[in-house]
Structures are given as C-alpha cells and as structure tokens.
Design a protein around this nucleic acid. Structure first.
Length: 519
RNA sequence: GGCUGGGUAGCUCAGCUGGUUAGAGCGCGGCACUCAUAAUGCCGAGGUCGGCAGUUCAAGUCUGCCUCCAGCUACCA
C-alpha cells in the first residue's frame, strides 16, 4: 500500500448531550470537503466521525430522563448520525464510544501505558464541577450571589477526594516541545501553535485519568472501581476506528497516523498536548496534524443556548439550500478565523457568486449551445491566443486549489476557482458569441467549445464543496460518473464534439426573500 | 501582569525576503452589451496603510515607545 496516497481525516466525536448545531456541521463539513477532494484526487480515504457517549454528565442526563444510559445515548447519538444525511457528509465510519470495539481499544491502550510505566495510582483532591467535567484550583473559584464557591463558568463545585490513576504528563514536556519543533505543521493555524507551545513551556502537571465517582464509562482493566477519564476514552476513538489494538495489519497499518484531526479551538489542548503524549507514551505515532478552526457568531452576536440564537443546520439548509450553505460556510471566512453568519451575507454570496457568477455562466453558455449547436458539444477549429489563455487557466486551476486544500484554506481554494469563473464571464463578453452567430458561426462554435470545456473543469473542481449541484452541472455536460475524478482534468480528456447534451436548466436560483415575492 | 496575533478604501480582507502611481471582492456612480437566472463586462470615485519617533537613498513592509481589539496564560487582595 502506497501510504502517500492514503488520507485519514477525523472530526471530533461529538458529545451526545449536545443538540447538533452549526458548529458541528461546520467541523464535519470541512472534513467532508477534504475527504471528497482527496478521493477525487485518487487517494484511499478514510473519513471518521462519531459520538462521545461516556461521562458523568451523560449518566446524569439519562437518570434525569429515567432511562438507562445506553438507551439514552442510542437515541441522542442518532441525531448526529442524521446530520450526515442532512448535510450530505460522506463519512466512511461513524464511531460510538459505547461500542465494544472501542472498549477493547481503550483498555488495550491503558495496558500499554501501564506496561510502559506511564500511569501510576495516586489520589486526587480538588474542586470538581460536574457540569464542566473539570477540576479547578482554589484560586480559580469565584463566589456566586449567595456566597457559594462556584467555577469560573458558574457551575457548582464540590470538594472531591478520591484515589485516581495518573498519567505522567509532566515527564513529556520536553518531548512534546521537541515534537512541535520537529513538526512545524503539526498545529494549525500558526497562532494556535504558539498558544500550545507556550502552554507546554509553562510546565505540565500529571493528569488524572480515572474516576471512582461514577460508573458510566470504560473500567480500568484489573481495577473495576475506576472508570477511565473521559478524554483518554474519547481521544482513543481515532485509533479504535482503524482497528487498534491490531497495529501490524489492517486499517491501522494503512491509515495511521491520521493525516488530520479537525477540531474546534476549545478542544485543541486535548488533541495537541494530551493525545500525542498518550500515543508517544504507548509507543505509537502521533497524528500528523491538528487544525483548530474558529467559531461562528449569529448576526454579530455570540451564539449561546441562553440567548436562544443557536443556528440549526436543518433550518439553514431548508431556507437557503444545501450546497448554498456548504459553499457559504467555507467561502465566507478564512478557515481558522471566527466568522459571522448573517442573513444578508448568506444571500449576498448565494446570489452574486452562485446564481450570478457561476449559475448564470453555465446557463448562458449552455443555452447558446442548446439553441445554436444542435444541442450537442460544439465543434472547434484552431484555438486563438484568447482561447488558449482561457483553457490554460482552467487546466492549471487544480494546482492552486490543491495547495490551498492541503493547508485547509478553503476560502482561498474557492477564490482560485472563482478567478476562472470571472475570467470565463469576461471571455464570453469579449468574444460575443451572439455576434459570431451571424458573422462567423464556426468561430462561435469554437468559443462555445472553449467555454463548455472550461465549465467542465470548474464543475469538476467544485464537486467536493457542492456535490449535488456540481453533479447536475456535469450531467448537463453529459459527463458520465466514471469521468468525474481529477484524473480527467486537462485536454487529454476534453469533451468530444457532437456529444448530445440535455436541455440546460439553472442550478443556482437567486434567493428572493419571502416578503419580496409577489411584490 | 506575561505571551501571541492583529489594527490597510463604507464593509470583509490580500499585500513574500523594505523599492516605481497601495490591491481584490462586496457596496456605490457611470458606460457598454443583450447570449443568460433584470444576469455579464468595462471604467471610476476613494485610503496621510492605528499614533509618535527612529534606521535607510527608499517603510504599509524593519526598530522602539504608545494606543485599541482578539486569543492564550498567570495572579490578586
């Protein structure tokens, strides 16, 4: 197996206590585009997502509902699985931490860490907030209005003193710093990398990795009183899904180390510090890269449940259309930055870029072809310098796109494609095929040929972002499903003159607000 | 308090190792065209590149100080 031609990308596993929102959709969307892109580029891809189902909070939620935790998680995990269909995500595997394969995997990892002397039994005491699933130092606590000590988040805390296993994280400080140094692209974007290295440079404490205060989790092998700390459990999903503890054959041998863990910026530390430390301590390879993306605000406001302005992906898709939403989320903001979702920005992008620039380009060209070329791919004569410039920009587009995709710079990748789209519209106007129709029909056909061939390239390149719509556009060019990978880019696989084309139909309608309709 | 990143046209942002008239998209104004989803193309307005000082033949681009914003981190009577 050629390891350079395989690609393993993961989303975080989503905490089942949450209801799927735009943040989940955004993270998985980014991975979906990467996975689709790599598949089209000839890679053997594994794209993993799933749900994190253990922990005290889940146990509590289930109790509150009067059901056992397994029944509870079966129900809520499904919400995240449904999101795949809603957003047209092409995940290859959906892992749940309550699965048997995962229990085996986590316990095997634990044993490796024990055997390596990286875990020891001690005792833990501190202020614990169930709601945050985190310990706080005395100094971090604040007083609420009744004078009770609470976490900085406002969550109630309790003094907990219990035996606990510890991972010797403190011993990994130098090795982690060397690892970051040797792998400058491990953490992205750059600003996040700085944050992590400065955090690690500040010193690391050993990490409590077990609890005795609840039961809903994976037991420590040989010491059932202890349940493994949720992050050790959760992070291990990335290797469970490739068949760990089997490491010599099968998917682990093929796909590990993962090419990319996509995460929100809130969980970067777990992925960029704890996870590589766990893996190296167990004698396993850390992942190649962790990318921390930003958050969305809603019309300039921070999104929160209490404000009631949570953005529901299902609603977005039904209002604006699936591919329009997929496009907007990756086009509007440089990936890694925070972004703002606003109705006007959404409509602006979908109308000016999708309907006007791209949709109308396809429509104006295809309808001329339909009316003037017998509804089939036009014949072409010699290409003049203008034609060659146009075609060359279509042919070389992939280079820029690929470069940006490998940096997860989705908006830049789209910009590269849009330069070609704008150039195509300018080319149409400059060549004025509607004039050539009367003056030089053969030349008109050549111009239209250049255009359909350019549109073919644009549609092929945009498939990862907008799979449905680009599928329709390729249908309109009568390109079979077997001819839609990036292998077919370039003049060697150009459209064949005379091929019958279906009647064109617009694929990106303009968005007209309800109140404007019928006005 | 410390660290990091950032303050560039109305808005969102590009500007690599310092070098001729500082760029794009959107928005705005005008012109052209009529194939097309009242779409497209072209032209234009406009910014003392956060402030002050310095280095240099030359600074948005380097240095120092100041200021504002964001993130991370530490600490506190």
């Amino acid at each position: 197996m050629d390891k350079s031609k395989r690609y393993y990308v993961t989303t975080p596993i989503y905490y089942v206590n949450d209801v799927p929102h735009i943040g989940h959709a955004y993270t998985t969307l980014a991975c979906d585009v990467l996975a689709r892109f790599k598949r089209l580029d000839g890679f053997d891809v594994k794209f993993l997502t799933g749900t994190d189902e253990h922990g005290q909070k889940v146990e509590k939620s289930a109790n509150d509902k009067g059901v056992d935790p397994q029944t509870f998680t079966d129900t809520v995990s499904q919400n995240f699985r449904d999101l795949l269909g809603t957003m047209n995500f092409s995940a290859d595997d959906f892992i749940r931490t309550t699965e048997e394969r995962h229990k085996i995997s986590v316990q095997a990892l634990w044993k490796r860490l024990i055997d390596a002397g990286e875990i020891y039994l001690g005792s833990y005491s501190g202020w614990y907030a169930v709601r945050d699933e985190a310990f706080y130092g005395e100094g971090e606590l604040v007083k609420d209005k009744d004078g009770n000590k609470v976490a900085p988040s406002g969550a109630p805390v309790e003094w907990v003193e219990e035996p606990s296993y510890f991972f010797k994280l403190s011993a990994w400080q130098d090795k982690l710093l060397k690892f970051y140094d040797d792998n400058p692209d491990f953490i992205a974007p750059k600003s996040r990398r700085n944050e992590v290295t400065s955090f690690v440079s500040g010193g690391l404490n050993d990490l409590s990795v077990s609890r005795t205060t609840f039961k809903w989790g994976i037991p420590v092998p040989g010491d059932d009183a202890h349940i493994m700390y949720v992050w050790l459990d959760a992070l291990t999903n990335y290797i469970t899904a490739v068949g760990f503890p089997e490491t010599e054959t099968g998917e682990y041998a093929t796909y590990w180390p993962a090419d990319l863990h996509m995460v929100g910026k809130d969980i970067l530390r777990f992925h960029a510090v704890y996870w590589p430390a766990f893996l190296m301590a167990a004698g396993l390879q850390p992942p190649k890269r962790v990318f921390a993306h930003g958050w969305w605000t809603n019309e300039g406001q921070k999104i929160s449940k209490s404000l009631g302005n949570v953005i529901d992906p299902i609603e977005l898709v039904s209002t604006y259309g699936l591919d329009q939403v997929r496009y907007f989320l990756l086009r509007e903001v440089p990936f890694g930055n925070d972004g703002d979702f606003s109705r006007s920005a959404m409509v602006g992008r979908m109308n000016s870029e999708l309907a006007n620039d791209l949709g109308n380009l396809a429509q104006r060209v295809l309808s001329m072809v339909n009316k003037n070329c017998d509804g089939s791919v036009p014949k072409h004569g010699e290409f003049n310098p203008d034609d060659n410039t146009m075609l060359a920009s279509a042919h070389t587009m992939i280079d820029g796109v690929k470069k940006h995709i490998d940096n997860q710079s989705f908006n830049d990748a789209l910009e590269v494609i849009w330069l070609v789209i704008r150039a195509s519209n300018a080319y149409v106007d400059a060549q004025a095929p509607w004039k050539l129709k009367k003056e030089d029909p053969a030349r008109m056909e050549t111009v239209l040929y250049v255009l359909v061939e350019t549109i073919r390239h644009i549609a092929l390149m945009l498939q990862p972002f907008m799979p449905d719509t680009m599928g329709k556009m390729l249908d309109q060019l009568a390109i079979s499903h077997e001819h839609r990978s990036f292998r077919f880019l370039g003049s060697a696989h150009a459209l064949v003159s005379g091929t019958a084309l279906p009647t064109p139909e617009g694929v990106f309608p303009r968005f007209v607000a309800e109140e404007e309709k019928g006005a």
